[in-house]
Nucleic acid binder design. Structure first.
Lengths: 249, 249
DNA sequence: CGCGCGTTTGACATGACTCAAATGCTGTGG
DNA sequence: CCACAGCATTTGAGTCATGTCAAACGCGCG
């Protein structure tokens, strides 16, 4: 019984800390990756005021849905994310995965409504930026606008490269490229570049890369059989990074 | 002899007018599509000062090349354009086509160098915007920054949709979607939505859509045989727009 | 423990690619 | 102004990478 209440307490404490994540931008660990970069302290405080840190979401929960009115930009605080677009007849394309410090929904900021749907891949928390207020703030903070421009431009550059992957690469090249991409993103966030968690399902990966689940599965086992990588359910280890690089096409 | 000199004069005149296309942003016919949108007169004059209208290029000439240092944003004034990215082993992907009023090179503006190559599809003229100066101007013109943000966001939205095309559509759906896309862009520019010129080669189209030239050719003839479209070498007529729409997937 | 979903594996089907050749178009030099 | 060279496009035949369908497996959750 005492055991139960101990756990209870722990859980409550965790939930409380979760809810209370009112860490100022200034103190946020994502500082370096996020919007604050290049802003002065005073400006940061202004930014702070419009950020809503309330957002916690469960697996498969959606932050926003295509065609719903656009109002807010989201920045991932913890956990990971996917966005999807659909054809009129219901086929779906995963247009991106998003990790802490990354912006979701940038492609909508000139439109009246979201054009993609954002779904949580795990339990996540986000910072919500009401875009209207960001714009108002931007009127007097060119630095903020610049940061946004940089963010957009980076995503655009990534997507252009992704077009190369979708249009011209074989299934093996696609997966190899994708793994290296993830590796770099995790490394940038201070995590291991050689061992990480695939928070998305095989079918999400397959869909994103324009392949069938079965193909992804086969390529994974092929890569594993050749001892280039190791997989234990969700955890990937990149053993021979050079060989992987060579396979990227 | 008099004939020759007549033509001579005509050519010289043309060349002169070409060179002299120092039409102020304010008076430019692309006004509505381009950066000036939403700027005040005074601001426009400032923008005017940093725009270089010198650029005329021949077919296949490149404006910028991947890995070359990034310095300038280009806006197409007349003619059309493609950008490409390549894999390390030389395969190439056409990442976009650009028409009057559209920005080329936006994906590079956070980087030290261009990541794609921009090539003229016909004789073209462009406005060149030294990005450094755009930034300086942006410091005091939030409206300008906003316009840039909108431009970037639009391109991003387009590319996300394009990922859907590349990843999930059949060859017929790809071409149908592409034709409709072109149609809309021409319409927006005041041209016919149902009859227009394909300034790019079949192999450029094929490459862009992630298909082989032969496939494009076959689909074109199939569409034509079914009397949905008509093709006379470079000119396309969309006869049954509704049917085309239905084929977009 | 067992249900259900996600993943893997196998066998087969097919859309799009490749290779090859014919046809058509464009621009250039005689 | 014509003829020819060279490139772009079309058409045909055969192949192949990847998709589809089906079934087994296994892991996590209730």
């Amino acid at each position: 019984m005492s055991q139960t209440s101990d756990i209870q307490l722990l859980i409550e404490d965790l939930a409380k800390r979760e809810q209370e994540q009112q860490i100022a931008c200034e103190d946020c660990s994502l500082h370096r990756l996020c919007l604050p970069l290049g802003l002065h302290r005073d400006d940061l405080l202004l930014l702070d005021k419009i950020v809503k840190r309330s957002g916690n979401y469960q697996v498969k929960q959606s932050l926003f849905t295509a065609a719903e009115p656009f109002s807010t930009l989201y920045v991932v605080r913890s956990g990971s994310f996917k966005t999807t677009i659909s054809t009129s007849n219901g086929r779906e394309q995963v247009t991106g995965f998003y990790f802490p410090g990354e912006f979701v929904g940038l492609e909508a900021l000139h439109m009246p409504s979201y054009q993609s749907t954002g779904v949580a891949l795990e339990t996540i928390s986000v910072c919500a930026l009401p875009y209207q207020k960001v714009q108002e703030l931007g009127e007097n903070l060119p630095r903020l606008q610049s940061q946004l421009l940089t963010r957009l431009s980076k995503e655009l550059a990534g997507d252009k490269n992704f077009m190369l992957l979708l249009g011209k690469k074989t299934s093996e090249e696609k997966l190899a490229t994708y793994l290296r991409l993830l590796s770099k993103r995790f490394e940038l966030r201070g995590f291991s570049a050689t061992e990480f968690d695939l928070t998305m399902s095989r079918s999400d990966i397959a869909n994103h890369l324009g392949l069938a689940v079965e193909t992804i599965s086969r390529v994974f086992t092929k890569f594993q059989d050749s001892r280039m990588i190791k997989i234990e359910s969700k955890v990937v280890s990149l053993i021979e990074m050079e060989r992987l690089k060579g396979l990227c096409g």
